[in-house]
Design a protein around this nucleic acid. Sequence first.
DNA 1: GTGGTCTAGACCACC
DNA 2: GTGGTCTAGACCACA
Lengths: 133, 133, 133, 133
Amino acid sequence: MIRVDASSFIPIYEQIKKEIVRLVATGQLKVHDPLPSIRDLAAEIIVNPNTVARAYRELEQDGLLSTQKGRGSFIADGAAPEASSKLKAYLGRIMDEAIAEAKTFDLGGDAILGLFEDRLRRSADRRRGGRHE
Amino acid sequence: MIRVDASSFIPIYEQIKKEIVRLVATGQLKVHDPLPSIRDLAAEIIVNPNTVARAYRELEQDGLLSTQKGRGSFIADGAAPEASSKLKAYLGRIMDEAIAEAKTFDLGGDAILGLFEDRLRRSADRRRGGRHE
Amino acid sequence: MIRVDASSFIPIYEQIKKEIVRLVATGQLKVHDPLPSIRDLAAEIIVNPNTVARAYRELEQDGLLSTQKGRGSFIADGAAPEASSKLKAYLGRIMDEAIAEAKTFDLGGDAILGLFEDRLRRSADRRRGGRHE
Amino acid sequence: MIRVDASSFIPIYEQIKKEIVRLVATGQLKVHDPLPSIRDLAAEIIVNPNTVARAYRELEQDGLLSTQKGRGSFIADGAAPEASSKLKAYLGRIMDEAIAEAKTFDLGGDAILGLFEDRLRRSADRRRGGRHE
DNA sequence: GTGGTCTAGACCACC
DNA sequence: GTGGTCTAGACCACA
């Protein structure tokens, strides 16, 4: 459920944080649900436990999860709306980024929208097993 | 013309590279045009000359510019199509990212497109001095 | 195993690259073998770590080694044939240089070959503790 | 008559020096012959006059040429044997370099000689307009 | 401990 | 003035 891209410039602990926020926001993790243990998650995504630990620690500081010694980590009370707003903000931000980037191309609004529609259609095609570009 | 964000996770030298690719792709820099000297650009964007030098060096390895010792760096022959395709690939990538992110919300294609249109309109509004969100 | 000459016109990072290519081509470094850490090699050959880092980075761009943050650098898959051909090209180039130089003496092919054989014999003699020229 | 390789790591003024030594050693330039003026040579090999000036200056320090203000530079008395021995030493050095390089390949003497013969034959073929490898 | 980025500043070759 | 190399040393992400 959690995916991470080692070649990205974004630190892995940041990617892990975002993934967990996403799972909470989309209801795949609910309040009081246990998170995978640091060691398990580290093994699953082939990453050092320290890296997972840092992600968990920072999420706890954000109030999104609570860690109980010896028992593990759990989604905190009230995490869902918090995560939801975070994720929405994140989505808005990267859409704005795509838009800003497109504008530096000297593309007009229609052209940008057309390009986006095109990528959207392609991604739907890929899902249905359509050919890659 | 070249802007970098020191707080970004993306290394500054990568940002510089991308900016130059953008300027070439959009025709603001043409074949044989001189680039700002390493020292000048470094001073302008308040960055160490070595950082700019690294960006220039890697762009030269990519064949986008050619540098002559003691004279400066210049946009290489055939840089424009190369830059154009690089920038298109880059733009496609971040649009795909936005789309992938949007899909985690279980939104249909139309809803995603609507959201994007919304952001696009907002960004146009902001430009015209409309209210910030 | 890696030697560099600080007084040479060839940049140190290029010398390091060539040495590693040589070690791979001669089988002294095999696929997936770890390279010395940047700091260790820098200390060994008495050079700044940044200089070694540059050599490693460029070799990685050439696909000859792969580095994993926090773990170190390793000989990449398929590095051996690549290194071999690189080294052969390099050797051919310096032999051609020697030949071109010899030809400026208006020597015939046989004379040039004789001269080369002579130096070759001398170098073997030196190895066996023979007199220096 | 003088050729220079801008992409070489060897400084251009060193290459110019070597070329002149070669011309003297091979008798293409004789004692008291005038050298091309700094500006002419610079224009011919497309190089900055300062670079040529430095080569001439260092050759003068070596006693190979003498410069007379307003008249130009001339091959100095006794330059020929000096140049000859320099060039021979140089040839020996690069042959030794080729040999040393070949030995790091773990090649035996016969193999090295074979390789050299091969390159020699190729170079003769090229001269006669034979096909390139 | 590892590598990666960045800074500050030196010296050199070349224009 | 230009770019190129190298050093010294800082801070960060990651194992």
